[in-house]
Computed example of a mutant assay.
Amino acid sequence: MFDTFQTKTCSPAVKASGRDVGEVAGTTLFIGAGAGDRRLEAVVRTAGFDVRRAVSLAEADLNPDRDDIDLIIMETLPGGHVDFTACHQLAALRMAPILVMAERDDETDRILALELGADDWASPVCGERELLAKVRALTRRRARVSRTAPNPNTVRFANWQLDRITRELRREDGVRTVLSTAEFDLLNLFMRNLGRVLTRDEILSSSSHNRARNERSVLVSVFRLRRKLGSDGAGFDIIRTVRSVGYIMDTPVTEG
């Protein structure tokens, strides 16, 4: 399934980090053909990580219960294009932070990759020290999450954590807010239909809005929920309007 590499050589930038490369720091999975910029692979290897490779997400055949991955690095497709579908699918698995290694510094691609769940983006102009810093920051974040015991009553998405018992939303920066019954039910409706556009009629027919029976109630509930949730941290609304159709939430959600 994977090709595996290890190394004990160390570049000056990695030596400056103070990491003992004699110890395996974790496992990094590269997904892609590997025909582009290979500097990041060299940084990861010399930083002490066990490196695995798969040409595609399908070949990787990832299983959260079986595979222990600390960092996922997505390389671009032939022609320099980012596999946005794979990026979104990987983010939904919530196995490890995702870093996209691009062959060109395209703002539209960068924004879309981050919106679809990538944790960071490395452009061709990034130096070796910056690449190392990105790897270390993402793996530190992974370590912090791993030390936190999962809570079966919580769900996480974007920069929010929802407590299903208290209906309290807690943002990463400490901001807290409590959802009304209608807002809580509406959020659960979006999470059950993640990545699918919900029409106003579908929202009206949901159990939480049966009493209202009017389109205005849908607009008010969606407006209040969107105002509380805000953006995903990258400047994009968590619940977005699809003009003339309805609303969509496609931010990856994880339990616990």
Rank of each mutant, 00 (worst) to 15 (best):
G22A: 07
P12A: 05
G22H: 02
V125I: 11
T28W: 00
E130K: 05
S146K: 13
L116A: 09
G235M: 08
I165W: 01
I73A: 10
S231N: 13
R110M: 15
A86C: 07
G233E: 09
R213H: 12
E255W: 10
A16S: 14
V155W: 14
A25Q: 08
E59P: 02
E115D: 15
L225C: 04
G32P: 02
A91L: 12
L99T: 06
T9D: 06
L189T: 15
L62S: 08
M191S: 11
A54Y: 04
D65L: 13
T181R: 06
G230N: 11
V218R: 05
I73Q: 04
L90K: 05
I248Q: 12
L169T: 06
R243A: 14
R142P: 07
N214K: 06
G195D: 15
V55T: 12
V125C: 10
R140E: 05
I31S: 13
V55P: 03
R104F: 03
V220I: 12
E59Q: 11
V145N: 10
M95V: 10
S206W: 10
G36L: 03
S17D: 04
V155T: 15
R38K: 02
S244T: 12
A143E: 07
R176W: 02
L189P: 10
S56F: 11
R53I: 01
F30N: 04
A122E: 07
L189F: 15
A13E: 14
L40M: 04
S123I: 05
V175F: 14
F49N: 01
L112M: 10
H209N: 11
S180L: 05
D83I: 03
G22N: 01
L138R: 07
L194G: 15
D65P: 13
T7Y: 01
F49S: 00
A60M: 04
F49W: 00
L29M: 05
L162E: 10
F84L: 15
T251L: 13
L57C: 09
F30M: 02
S146Y: 14
F223E: 12
E130I: 05
T4M: 05
G48E: 00
P124M: 02
F223D: 08
E215Y: 13
T199V: 09
R141P: 09
E103P: 01
R144C: 07
R38A: 03
D61E: 13
P152G: 09
R45W: 00
D185W: 03
A118P: 08
D106A: 10
S205K: 10
M95D: 07
A133Y: 11
E107F: 11
I98V: 08
D237V: 06
G48C: 01
A182L: 07
R171I: 07
G36K: 03
G174T: 09
E115C: 09
M1C: 02
A212M: 05
P252D: 14
R19E: 06
R136P: 00
G36P: 00
V24H: 00
T9R: 00
R164K: 14
G127C: 12
F157D: 10
D68S: 02
P152I: 11
L194V: 14
L187K: 08
D20G: 01
R53N: 00
R170V: 12
G195K: 12
G36T: 02
A60D: 06
I238R: 12
F49K: 01
R94S: 15
V55C: 11
A47I: 01
L189G: 11
V43H: 00
S17G: 12
T181N: 05
I239A: 08
D67V: 06
L204V: 08
S231G: 13
D83M: 05
A158S: 14
S206D: 15
